[in-house]
Amino acid sequence: MKWTGVRYTDRPTVEVRTWIDAPPDRVWALVSDVGLMPGMSDELQSVEWLDGATGPALGARFVGRNRHEALGNWSTISYVVEYEAGHVFGWAVEDPADPSAVWRFRLHAGDGGTELSEWMQLGPGRSGLSEAIDRMPEKEEKIVFVRLREFERNMTVTLERIKQLAETG
C-alpha cells in the first residue's frame, strides 16, 4: 500500500519524549512557567497570562506571540484545557471547542527522575497553515508534513533545554 501522507483534517499529532535526571517537582516548575517558554523556542517570542492569572489552572488564558520565517508574525490566545498539578499541563489554541492546535506537557516520575513528553495536535480549527493549504491545496500533504517536522525539531530543542535547566538546578 502506498503512503499518501496526512491531511490537516486528520488532526495529525507529534510527540517528543525525554528522560530528565531530576525530580518531577523541579521539571514541573519549568514546564508550568509559560514565561520561560520563549527562551526554549525560536518561534515563540513572548507569552503572558491574561485576566489576572499568574499560572496554569483550568480555563486560564494566555497570549502567545510567534514569529516564523515563512508564516510571518502572529499572536494567539490559548486556554488551559488540561491541568493536573505536577503531571499534566495542556492548552487549546484559539477556540477550545474547535482549536487550531492543542499542546500538552505530561510528566511521569520514576527511577529517581522524570519522563517528560510534549505532544501537539494540528487542528481541527483553522490556522495560518489552513491559509497556506487554501492557496496550494495540491500541496496539502507536503505542507502538513513539513510543519509537523518543524514542530518535532522545535519540541526536541524545547525538551532538551528543559532537561538542561532541570538537571543543573
Rank of each mutant, 00 (worst) to 15 (best):
G112Y: 12
T18S: 03
A60G: 09
P56L: 14
L107R: 05
T114R: 00
L44K: 00
W91S: 04
E15I: 07
E152Y: 01
E82F: 12
A109K: 12
Q164D: 15
V6W: 06
R135G: 04
V146P: 03
W49K: 11
R161F: 07
G72I: 01
V47T: 09
M136F: 08
V144Q: 05
W91P: 09
K142P: 06
L122T: 03
I143D: 04
A85V: 04
W91E: 14
T76A: 11
L36H: 03
T54Y: 14
L129P: 06
T76W: 13
G113F: 01
W91Y: 08
P96Y: 14
R106G: 04
E118L: 02
M37D: 08
P38E: 01
I20H: 04
G55R: 07
E150Q: 11
L50P: 01
V34D: 01
L30D: 05
E150V: 03
P137D: 10
L129A: 09
G52R: 11
L129I: 06
K163I: 00
P96C: 13
K163C: 02
I77P: 06
V63K: 13
H87K: 06
G52T: 07
Y83H: 09
A101S: 12
H68G: 01
R149L: 08
V31W: 10
T4F: 03
E131L: 13
G112H: 14
Q121G: 04
R17F: 08
R135D: 05
G64D: 08
T13F: 06
A60W: 03
G64K: 01
E94Y: 11
E160N: 11
S41M: 15
E152H: 03
Y79I: 08
V81P: 01
M120R: 15
G35W: 10
